[in-house]
Nucleic acid binder design. Sequence first.
DNA 1: GTCTATACGCAGATAGAC
DNA 2: GTCTATCTGCGTATAGAC
Lengths: 219, 219
Amino acid sequence: MTQAPAQDRGARSRDAILDTAGALMARYGYAATSISMISAECGLPASSIYWHFGSKDGIYVAVLERARIALLAALPRAEMAGADVAQRLDAFLADVQDAFQRHPHGLKLLLGLGMVQQDASAAAVAEVHRYRDALVAWAHAALCAVFGLDDRPQVADELARFTLRMASGTAVARWFDPSVGLDTGQLHVALLALAAHHDVPVRATPREGALPRDAADRE
Amino acid sequence: MTQAPAQDRGARSRDAILDTAGALMARYGYAATSISMISAECGLPASSIYWHFGSKDGIYVAVLERARIALLAALPRAEMAGADVAQRLDAFLADVQDAFQRHPHGLKLLLGLGMVQQDASAAAVAEVHRYRDALVAWAHAALCAVFGLDDRPQVADELARFTLRMASGTAVARWFDPSVGLDTGQLHVALLALAAHHDVPVRATPREGALPRDAADRE
DNA sequence: GTCTATACGCAGATAGAC
DNA sequence: GTCTATCTGCGTATAGAC
């Protein structure tokens, strides 16, 4: 390991900076995170940080870009094998739940930094939107597979946006009470009802027995 | 008017400061809003601002407190006169929609400033929670009246938190696309389904004809 | 690529005349 | 209560040796 070419020292530093910058910005927000904080936490001097990213704005863009790529790589492709809608929906919600638990930085970055929009650079604004659009597109595709909505993209879009708003709202609720988690049971009921409301064929209309309160307890 | 006792000059200045500080903090967030910005926008020198509020933190607490009082005063008491659940639910959602449209600052302050939590003063943290708790309590009471849940407070709590998370998530979506509004149609369907899922007696089970897409279009 | 040292401005906050 | 003037420190960002 120590024989690694000097070339990757830079890459490792770069990653270390992005790690600490991402954590700090997710915690305190963009404006409240200073270069000195990042420098102190990751050990590298401020000038190294500027050498890698050029500006505070550049750090933010790089952080968000890396978070987006990591999240999308972790999200499973929509290969829905479940027999009926309820099962596929549970599988989808388990994925969402999983992403929500394991990548808490992503949404927090969007929340804490979204306000940057108001005065941020064009690059930062573009990157924020890219992150959001990627999430919407993923949820859209997954919900198409769950409900068989390939011929009704508008409905899929509505359901995707509904899901993301619930996730965002839950992320907000979480900084009031960190024990709050995404309630997949609620989402299950709500998404089924919304689909039915749009006349999407949903075998096994929501009845009490068919609704696991936790997506993990079937089998 | 001009003969007003000198005493209320201070009160008017105080209000002016709170107005501009609230607008700026809702737009840029707490950390990104500086005293000089507030001073420049409202015309009063920085020292006057400090005379009134003592510190930047004090400004935030006062802004949020005033926003909470104003919002709660504007929210109608829960005198649900509607005949059936669907009608009372529509009335409730119209109130929520109204508050959402007319008091955009409130949620934005919570969103943009909530992160202050991480390093803010005890007073600021307390005020943020007071604002949130007041919203939850209002929604709880209103939903009790809508669904007749006085004997099932847990269900009312779940529905109230669901509603607030949707509202928060929509506020987030809004800074990506300002034209986004709270979709009361979705909320109507989702809340009815959640209530039914908890075996709350809901006359007129959600069917297509009974669901106005816009809460305003019933005669 | 990483370091020390530093420029420059604006941040939050205060003093004291009026 | 409001003003002018000012203090101190930290913010972003850069220069230049190694």
